[in-house]
Design a protein around this nucleic acid. Structure first.
Lengths: 108, 108
DNA sequence: GTTTTGCGCAACCCCTGAGTTGCAAGAACG
DNA sequence: CGTTCTTGCAACTCAGGGGTTGCGCAAAAC
């Protein structure tokens, strides 16, 4: 229970960009290298590289050297962890909201 | 099935800021007005207002006029929807990864 | 061995967004 | 009515991040 369920803003920041999300989704279909992605996306290879670094930093992507290429693949683990946290947080909000409403009705 | 499970980057962007997340978490505990939040957080009221607008735009917060105050409260709905989507996406990634590995082993 | 092809580093541009201050207006309460 | 509290709009600053280009280098490919 030592996971940081308090402020997952770092992962959110990694997911908050459209290009980056597109790259991630693409890697979710099949692994690819930066150069390969640069051929598929309308941005430079360097832009792709930066995005991949961010994604790797957030634990959403893993890289492996294969030949002279650096192949990246999407990891579901971090994302499903996040999903679990978000669900718990959302439930807590709604529960507290209900408590407040109940108090107001009982008290009025 | 018309929900945009493809690119939830808008909601992510709303959640990607530490201050904004803190405000949202605070609203999850109990509703509050912008001025009230400005007294609790080390930023100006205007900054709070901007954050609240972003959160409202993302469907994470709802506002209601109460007396002369505008009271905001956190909504869990959007967040749990997002959690569901993320979980499905993560599962798809891992499934595809397994398929690829299986193919590689069978093929080799 | 020469020519691709892919990666890494660095410098640079530019726009967005977080934050600030200042001021005007309107509802609550004395 | 006057004061106070809260809200809203506007202009401004400033750092960070997405994107680009250029160059050098190493590993494959031929």
């Amino acid at each position: 229970m030592s996971r940081a369920a308090t402020a997952p803003t770092a992962v959110f920041a990694a997911l908050a960009d459209d290009t980056r999300w597109a790259i991630l989704a693409r890697l979710g279909e099949a692994p690819a290298s930066a150069s390969a992605l640069a051929r598929e996306f309308p941005v430079s290879r360097q832009a792709i590289v930066k995005h991949l670094e961010v994604l790797r930093g957030a634990g959403l992507v893993e890289a492996e050297t294969r030949g002279r290429e650096l192949v990246h693949r999407a990891l579901g683990g971090r994302l499903s962890d996040l999903a679990r946290d978000l669900d718990r947080i959302a439930a807590a909000w709604d529960r507290r909201l209900d408590d407040l409403k109940r108090l107001a009705e009982d008290g009025g």
